[in-house]
Amino acid sequence: MNRTTTLWRPTGPEELALVEASGWTAWPPRLPEQPIFYPVLNEDYAVRIARDWNVPASGVGYVTRFEVESEFLERYPVRQAGGETILELWVPAEELDEFNAHIVGRIEVVREFR
């Protein structure tokens, strides 16, 4: 069995509705102004974005958790977007379908902020 890596993604209600429509198995295509998909490497960072950015922007913020095949993720270097624990992957929008194909199991909502 392939090893997996746990990733988190803070998201708002519109994106979450599209994830739900996929059967909780895929992230929706990026919008033209979103050339990169940014999953994050720890729950604390995802919580901060969901609470401090998604809630003011749309009234609710969700933290999702999902597993991706670790070997596949090796192509994406870990990016430090601020402090020591502000870690994310940068997945180009054109690679998102392939990224989705390497998700193992379902995308799940683990936190909700209003």
Rank of each mutant, 00 (worst) to 15 (best):
M1R: 14
M1G: 15
M1H: 05
N2P: 15
R3E: 13
T4E: 00
T4C: 03
L7P: 09
W8Y: 15
R9T: 11
R9Q: 13
P10H: 14
G12I: 04
G12R: 15
P13Q: 13
L18N: 09
L18F: 03
V19L: 01
E20T: 05
G23Y: 07
W24Q: 03
T25F: 06
T25C: 08
W27T: 00
W27H: 12
P28W: 03
P28C: 03
P29K: 14
P29G: 01
R30C: 13
R30I: 00
L31G: 10
P32R: 08
P35L: 11
I36E: 07
I36C: 03
F37Y: 12
Y38K: 06
V40G: 05
V40K: 11
L41A: 02
N42I: 04
Y45I: 08
Y45P: 04
A46L: 06
A46T: 10
A46H: 05
A46S: 12
R48L: 15
R48D: 15
I49Y: 12
A50I: 08
D52A: 10
W53I: 14
W53Q: 14
V55Q: 02
P56K: 04
P56M: 09
P56H: 13
A57G: 01
S58W: 06
S58A: 10
S58C: 15
S58M: 13
V60F: 08
G61F: 00
G61W: 06
G61H: 03
G61K: 01
V63S: 00
V63K: 10
T64K: 02
T64W: 01
T64V: 09
T64H: 01
R65W: 02
R65K: 12
F66L: 13
F66K: 12
E67P: 09
E67L: 08
E71A: 15
F72Q: 11
L73M: 12
E74P: 02
E74A: 14
E74N: 10
E74F: 00
R75D: 08
Y76E: 05
Y76H: 12
P77F: 00
V78Y: 02
R79H: 14
A81W: 08
A81P: 05
G82E: 10
G82D: 15
G83P: 03
T85V: 05
W90R: 13
V91F: 04
E94C: 10
E94R: 14
L96T: 05
D97N: 04
E98T: 03
F99G: 00
N100Q: 07
H102C: 02
I103C: 08
V104P: 06
G105A: 04
E108G: 10
E108D: 12
E108S: 11
V109Y: 05
V110L: 02
R111V: 00
E112W: 05
E112Y: 07
E112F: 03
E112N: 00
R114G: 03
